[in-house]
Design a protein around this nucleic acid. Structure first.
Length: 740
RNA sequence: AUCGGGUUGGAGUAGUCAGGUUAUCUCGUCGGGCUCAUAACCCGGAGACCGGUGGUUCAAAUCCACCAUCCGAUACCA
């Protein structure tokens, strides 16, 4: 008898993508895909699953983007929330299933946003609660602000302030640190401070009151929590968390002087210009999202608990099996192992009146069961970057390629324990050789062979050859692979799990090789034929199993198989653990089977990507903002101010304090030399540069570059893709000749 | 320079926290087989002193120390 297991309530949390740009493949590999695989897997196990995430829409970078484009922050986040939620659904993630297809009691998914009015309300409630329970404290800090002519005060983050270093006198010191001498100091020690964004504005230090979350009082509970998790967390999560705890926790500001964000829940005038700091508010999205899901969907679709349905998943109940898994990139680890758990403990202590603790009481909010953080996916060796245009954007990708191929490649190459690379040639290789050659081909072999047997239109011609007892050993092998894949998925080891599943299709290929059913398709009935075709019948069953097992990874092709083998029942009703239930009758679909995937052509792909990249670059050069500011034309007189001359490189030295700089001694006129620091290390070798004739800017104001005065600048062409070429005169000409 | 992460057959990786038989898998490569299938599939072989040195231990890819080297973030830039 199968054991009747209690249904688990599982919550999948995905880190909230920041809504100031489209998602790129780094996001997909790091959080979106693993979260979705886990969601689909937990569903297939029959569990009640809730999945929560959404767009993170507050904070400074969004206001900066808005300013650049001359539109409101709300317009920015509206745009990218729409683009990103659409792209996620198109790549096969289950965010569109607000209500589980099995019924609302089973849960659902919500991709919400932090500008949601209800999110703001709940955050305010929490803020108030923590304030009243004394988890927040008020401190006065000193901060730079710029004051415009009409008296408007704008507070500036440290990194937007520069000035003169109190230690070495360098002109380019930042708000809290000097890069020339490396010293750090309080921002009020900086001399002659100025705003980086608006250097002429008046700037001064003002006192500003802020509220701080007393993170320090959670130190002990968090240490206990971390040690309880030490065998579950991956090494990167463990060590990053340990680092934080070893440094000692300090209180963190939960408010900011900014206008874009959630208002504080106080009427008091002095809080009017402040907003909730985005880190403190965005993590609460997990909590608000679950509640909003219950209010909007559970309630509407008549969940037995109505708007309280979220408690099934989020509130600890010793009689239930409950599990919380969070997915994110490595930069987010401390937020999920330290900060968010601390906030949860604070909320629990506030509500129950108990002391702060990591051990839960009935009715408390649950803490995480695993923080499954991934490392980064790199693009051909470099990090995905929005500002440097170094990325493959998810919406663009989906316009051209089958989402399942992406999901396959990113799953089998997932940055689980260290950074991995996205490479187009590897993408093509893996899809063509593994996904298509091994798996797609196996499915195709089975289906086309079966269709070459004579059949009446409704019955599977393999039924009469079906004989499981002949294949006991093979079935055991496959059973064991299924079991291994399950265990891997339970530990969020997706690469390994998918590898086991692919091995099942490899076993299928071996089975066909051994049975050689093609020999008997049209032959007389015989024992040999019976044996051979029983192998094909088992192959058919394996195809069906694979449709179920690959579903969390590649949902679209799995449905295609389901239709081709003539299964009528929804594939979502089949339980993961029944994927290998071989006792059921064979189904049949009389229409001709199609190949699951199309082969990819690397050459075509490279051409297409080059085209997209050049279009993208052209677009950017012609952005309206650049033209509006009148920066497209300069006056001839302005151009003549720049004095460019020819010179000859005499010698090249290492810079003592910089990675990319060469210190170059230049023959600038026949009689004199000058020193120029050039960022050409790693592009040009020392030997190559020495003796080279170059063009330089002669009348640039000398400037200290990481400690060494640079008197001018070498001219070089840069295509934006890392190709840099120095300008050099076409023939011999004396040094110091004017370039014009 | 500061901080973080790597270094395992030709390439990419598993194993490292909790040390223990022949070091995992994929691709490639070489030889053979099959011919149903999307030039795919199946079998077999070759190929690794686990970055180096020293230490702890009966035993080290795994723990410790030092060194080398690569990558990323930040700063410096064209």
């Amino acid at each position: 008898m199968p054991q009747v297991r209690k249904m688990e309530c599982v919550t999948i949390f995905m880190a909230w993508p920041y809504a100031n740009g489209p998602l790129h493949l780094g996001h997909v590999a790091g959080n979106c895909l693993p979260a979705d695989i886990q969601y689909k897997f937990e569903r297939a196990k029959g569990n009640k699953v809730l999945m929560c995430s959404g767009s993170d829409e507050h904070g400074t970078p969004i206001t900066v983007s808005a300013e650049e484009e001359g539109i409101s922050p709300q317009e920015i986040v509206d745009r990218y929330h729409k683009i990103n939620s659409k792209a996620l659904i198109e790549m096969g993630c289950s965010w569109g299933d607000n209500v589980d297809p099995r019924g609302v009691e089973y849960g659902g998914a919500l991709y919400n946003r932090t500008t949601d009015i209800r999110h703001k309300e709940i955050v305010k409630e929490v803020f108030k609660l923590l304030m009243e329970s004394d988890f927040l404290e008020e401190k006065t800090m000193q901060q730079y602000c710029s004051i415009s002519e009409d008296g408007i005060i704008k507070f500036l983050p440290d990194r937007y302030v520069e000035g003169e270093c109190p230690n070495c006198g360098s002109e380019e010191a930042r708000g809290d640190q000097c890069d020339d001498c490396g010293v750090t100091y309080d921002s009020n020690e900086l001399l002659n401070p100025r705003s980086k964004m608006n250097p002429t504005a008046k700037i001064e230090i003002r006192d500003t009151d802020h509220l701080f979350f007393k993170l320090n009082i959670f130190q002990e509970s968090l240490e206990k929590h971390a040690s309880e998790r030490s065998h579950i967390w991956k090494p990167n999560v463990r060590s990053m968390t340990k680092n934080w705890l070893n440094m000692g926790l300090r209180s963190r500001a939960v408010t900011r002087d900014i206008s874009w964000g959630i208002k504080l829940p106080f009427d008091d005038d002095r809080w009017k210009t402040k907003r909730v700091y985005v880190w403190f508010e965005a993590v609460q999205g997990y909590f608000t999202c679950a509640r909003i899901w219950a209010e909007r969907f559970a309630h509407k679709y008549e969940h037995s608990e109505g708007a309280d349905a979220w408690k099934d998943w989020l509130i600890y109940n010793p009689d239930k099996k409950q599990k919380h898994i969070y997915f994110m990139g490595k930069d987010n680890i401390p937020f999920h192992t330290i900060i968010w758990p601390a906030i949860i403990m604070a909320m629990n202590a506030s509500k129950s009146g108990n002391l702060v603790s990591n051990s839960l009481q009935n009715g408390d909010l649950l803490l995480e069961n695993n923080v499954a953080s991934n490392e980064y996916l790199m693009l051909q060796g470099g990090q995905f970057s929005k500002s440097r245009k170094h990325a493959v954007w998810l919406p663009n990708f989906l316009e051209e390629y089958d989402p399942d191929t992406l999901r396959y490649y990113l799953s089998i190459n997932m940055p689980e324990t260290h950074d991995t690379d996205f490479r187009w040639d590897e993408f093509v290789d893996r899809v063509n050789n593994e996904l298509i050659g091994n798996y797609g081909n196996f499915v195709n072999r089975v289906l086309t062979l079966a269709h070459r047997l004579e059949s009446d239109s409704n019955e599977n011609p393999l039924s009469k050859y079906d004989s499981l007892e002949k294949h006991h050993e093979k079935i055991m092998e496959i059973n064991s692979l299924h079991e291994k894949a399950t265990k891997s998925l339970e530990k969020q080891r997706f690469k390994e799990a998918l590898r086991y599943i692919m091995t099942i299709s490899q076993k299928g290929n071996i089975l066909l090789q051994e049975s050689a059913p093609w020999k008997y398709l049209n032959s007389e009935e015989s024992d040999e034929k019976n044996n051979s075709l029983s192998g094909l019948a088992l192959g058919w069953r394996i195809v069906k199993s694979l449709a179920i097992l690959t579903r969390p990874f590649m949902p679209f092709q799995s449905e295609r198989i389901w239709a081709m083998i003539g299964e009528k029942s929804p594939i979502d009703d089949v339980l993961w653990q029944d994927a290998l239930s071989f006792e059921r009758n064979l189904t049949w679909n009389n229409s001709k089977p199609n190949a699951l995937f199309k082969k990819l052509d690397l050459k075509e792909i490279i051409e297409r990507e080059d085209m997209i990249a050049s279009e993208y670059n052209n677009d950017n050069e012609a952005t309206p903002s650049a033209r509006d500011k009148g920066s497209e034309y300069i006056q001839f007189e302005d151009f003549m101010k720049v004095e460019m001359k020819t010179g000859k490189i005499l010698s090249v030295e290492e810079h003592p304090n910089a990675d990319k700089l060469w210190v170059i001694k230049l023959q600038d006129t026949p009689e004199s030399t000058r020193t120029i620091c050039a960022g050409l290390k790693g592009i040009y070798d020392k030997e190559k540069l020495e003796g080279m004739n170059v063009v330089y800017v002669a009348n640039l104001e000398p400037r200290k570059l990481r400690g060494i005065i640079s008197e001018g600048m070498l001219l070089a062409a840069d295509d934006g893709n890392g190709n840099v070429k120095l300008l050099t005169p076409e023939g011999d000409i004396s040094t110091g000749s004017l370039v014009r």
